[in-house]
Design a protein around this nucleic acid. Structure first.
Length: 483
RNA sequence: CGGGGAUUGGCGCAGCGGUAGCGCGCACGGUUCGGGACCGUGAGGCCGUCGGUUCAAAUCCGACAUCCCCGACCA
């Protein structure tokens, strides 16, 4: 059924080789001349545009407003929150010369915008009536990473950063969870990736945050990829940036803040999660192109015209149903080539119409994930396509959920922990006493760091024993090696 | 930033002191569309960058840049 000849690397045998091939051959992105920077090609950028459209609508519905702050941040401003600057300083890109002159004060290319936004928020907020303030920006940020991969970790990346200011802690906490759930829903309902959601340990917290919550992806090799974060900043920044508001009783307070973001890394996670040895697999809800139609022409004008007519009919119904589609009628490429190419690009649904289908009054519809072909009457095409896309979306999520569970082990002893990290390299769920020393030791020995304490574990007061030191531990944590 | 490998038409590679080659892709013409077609003709390269050695450098030496793999850092 499927061509025997293999043009792509085996995914699980060598995932990074496979990944690079897919990114290149599916036309998602390529390397730029600058270290760690990437050129996002139209097909890859379309995935980002879909991401933006989906999330942006949710944000706006909640009263979040988009704005734009500058890419340059005065170095002194970045230093205002001590933990913040010390966390980011190793990866800053700094401009020292501009307009042919050495700058009196160096400018940092934003690694994130807390500082430049909050010194402005100071002027925007004076009364409780100004709160909550909910600002988001879609932009690029620069973090000079030592080791880079296309989409997964690039020196410059695109993201969205939401920043909110609230009267009290309760409201801020609610916002943090709301943003976290947006990301969870986006990953699960749109990208069809089952994720872990929880809180980061103190050592993994965002520089300057009181609490950091994160979405963690389990990639097929058992390694971890942080997919999005939502931070409870408490009053750390409002105090350092002197943001205050006057309440109903005319007393002055520092407000409570949050920040949250998701980046183009999500596209990397998407590629890793669903592809196979034939290429990319895109869940229908995020796919730039949901349906591709292939005429199979013959050297016969009458037959070809009939095929074109049938395709036109289907195209019209697809348009009415708002299904993103295109027709690949290139005559200089054989049907075999065109099909393979569409599989590499991960297009969810493929329609083939040739002389045989015309004669039998059917069309062939095939799903990218299962590669199953079905003969369907053209009259039922739209229902069948919609149904197939829904099934595919659900199946991909279910498979992702199964994979996540298969790659997550519960262990009771550190011996077991070590064995797993030396062999299968999975996620591990285990009791941890929450001391930084144990965390560090575990990382030193197994290369595995804490990922999150899952939401349903957070309030637990279990009486377990720390996987490393055997002292009392109340909550189970997830551990994994990071990608 | 430490260790290892690499850099030659768009992609994959060969050449390793003396006239830059092959396969794929691309263009044109023709034959073929049912799972990566075939024949013919043709275009395309300061051999990653800068500097050295030499009568002569893709080839030898040095520095730098970028990529890949393995570590420490991270959305």
């Amino acid at each position: 059924m499927v061509s025997q000849k293999k043009y792509l690397s085996n995914k699980l045998a060598n995932i990074s080789k496979w990944y690079n091939e897919i990114v290149e051959k599916a036309g998602l992105a390529e390397h730029a001349p600058v270290k760690g920077c990437m050129i996002i090609k139209p097909y890859g950028y379309a995935l980002w545009e879909n991401t933006q459209n989906i999330l942006d609508a949710w944000f706006k519905k909640d009263g979040v407003q988009n704005a734009y702050f500058p890419i340059f941040i005065p170095y002194s401003l970045l230093q205002k929150e001590k933990k913040h600057i010390s966390g980011f300083s190793p990866e800053l890109a700094i401009v020292t010369t501009a307009g042919g002159e050495k700058l009196a004060q160096p400018l940092v290319v934003r690694p994130t915008s807390e500082t430049i936004m909050y010194q402005t928020f100071r002027n925007w907020i004076s009364s409780y009536k100004d709160l909550p303030l909910k600002i988001n920006q879609w932009c690029n940020v620069v973090r000079w990473e030592k080791r880079t991969y296309l989409f997964l970790r690039t020196s410059e990346f695109l993201w969205q950063e939401g920043h909110t200011v609230h009267k009290n802690d309760v409201e801020a906490r609610e916002m943090v969870m709301k943003a976290l759930m947006w990301y969870k829903d986006f990953y699960e309902k749109y990208l069809a990736i089952s994720v872990f959601v929880g809180e980061k340990s103190a050592s993994e917290r965002f520089a300057g945050a009181k609490q950091t919550f994160a979405i963690e992806l389990v990639i097929p090799t058992g390694k971890a990829l942080q997919g999005a974060t939502s931070h409870n900043l408490g009053q750390n920044f409002s105090k350092n940036f002197d943001i205050t508001y006057t309440d109903e009783q005319n007393t002055i307070h520092n407000p409570f803040q949050t920040s949250w973001g998701i980046s183009t890394r999500s596209i990397g996670g998407l590629i890793l999660s669903h592809g196979d040895d034939n290429g990319l697999i895109l869940p229908p809800k995020i796919a730039p192109l949901q349906v591709i139609i292939f005429p199979i022409y013959k050297n016969d004008d009458v037959i070809n015209q009939t095929i074109d007519l049938q395709i036109k009919r289907i195209k019209t119904t697809l348009e009415k149903s708002g299904i993103r589609h295109s027709i690949d009628e290139r005559r200089d490429k054989t049907i075999g080539f065109r099909i393979s190419e569409s599989e590499i690009r991960g297009i969810p649904i493929r329609i083939e119409i040739g002389p045989a289908e015309i004669e039998k009054k059917v069309i062939i519809i095939s799903r990218r994930d299962t590669l199953e072909k079905q003969k369907i009457s053209p009259d039922n095409a739209i229902e069948f396509i919609n149904e197939s896309m829904e099934k595919m979306q659900n199946d991909l999520l279910r498979r992702s959920y199964e994979n996540k569970n298969r790659l997550t082990a519960e262990v009771e002893s550190f011996e077991e922990f070590k064995t797993i990290m030396n062999t299968n390299r999975q996620f591990i769920r285990a009791f941890w006493c929450e001391s930084a020393t144990c965390e560090e030791k575990i990382k030193e020995i197994t290369k595995a760091s804490t990922r999150v304490c899952e939401l349903n574990e957070l309030e637990k007061k279990g009486d377990g024993l720390c996987i490393y030191c055997n002292n009392k531990a109340h909550r189970k944590w997830l551990f994994a090696q990071s990608y």
